[in-house]
Nucleic acid binder design. Structure first.
Lengths: 135, 135
DNA sequence: GTATTTGCAAATGATTTGCAGTGCT
DNA sequence: AGCACTGCAAATCATTTGCAAATAC
């Protein structure tokens, strides 16, 4: 993925810090501020938390990133992609995307509720296949 | 609803503060710490934030309460009821329950993902019927 | 060259903790 | 009576802000 272009498309200036944020975010899939900062420190010894927060907000503002709220956890961030749901393993903590037909679900709920629905935030939690085996 | 019994069933001692928390929580449906504290202050002039936090955590621990995380908002709390999803109006902020067939959805996703799913956290956002009219 | 971004330090805000006194069962 | 709960004050943790220097375009 070309983060350079991604930033420009969203009218954000390209800086090494921003490229680093996107690169680690992509590698992790979903990551919270604290873990992201730890990772970034390895490559940018001088990066500050303030910069990280400012950039996360800038990228959220232009919808380059999306915030994901797992109950009882600190928010995680992901690069915006096609609408999807999430799976959380309550045992090992694995957190992953699942590309359900979110649109169909949205339409059904819209009909039932008379809301004009735009988006959904969906997390399913349970035990992942691996953890079922190592019961 | 008898909060006295509700607390005892969950092995928590009955105190005026806890009864107050549950009563306001029920009245509001979903409420965050700050708003709940403001409400409580009216009835219990001496209640402290520390007490509120401690009690919220105690009640979460025994699953008498559930935390609901709306992206970009402070967590709200609700009294645990049968599994359901939530609707958020992006215009007026109205936040309500919707009793979809959460179990069927859970089973479908379980099949597709091979996760052994236990619960889901679902929020649909859009424009509520009222706000559509006052467009 | 100008506007934006960075990193620091300080400020703010939210939540937690320790402890002495009080209240529940 | 004994243990749990309350409220206060202080401590901790997370996030934001202001500003001078550095950097992107």
């Amino acid at each position: 993925m070309n983060y350079n272009i991604l930033l420009k498309e969203h009218h954000l200036k390209v800086t090494p810090q921003r490229l680093g944020i996107l690169s680690f975010m992509h590698k992790a899939g979903h990551i919270n501020i604290e873990d992201l900062f730890t990772q970034l420190k390895k490559e940018f010894t001088s990066i500050s938390l303030a910069t990280l927060y400012k950039n996360i907000h800038a990228m959220l503002g232009v919808e380059l990133l999306k915030e994901v709220q797992i109950p009882h956890e600190k928010p995680k961030y992901e690069i915006t992609k096609t609408p999807h749901a999430h799976l959380l393993c309550q045992k090992c903590g694995n957190f992953e995307d699942i590309f359900l037909d979110v649109d169909t679900m949205l339409n059904n709920v819209a009909k039932q509720s008379n809301y004009e629905l735009k988006e959904s935030s969906i997390i399913y939690s349970g035990i992942c296949p691996k953890c079922q085996d190592n019961h």
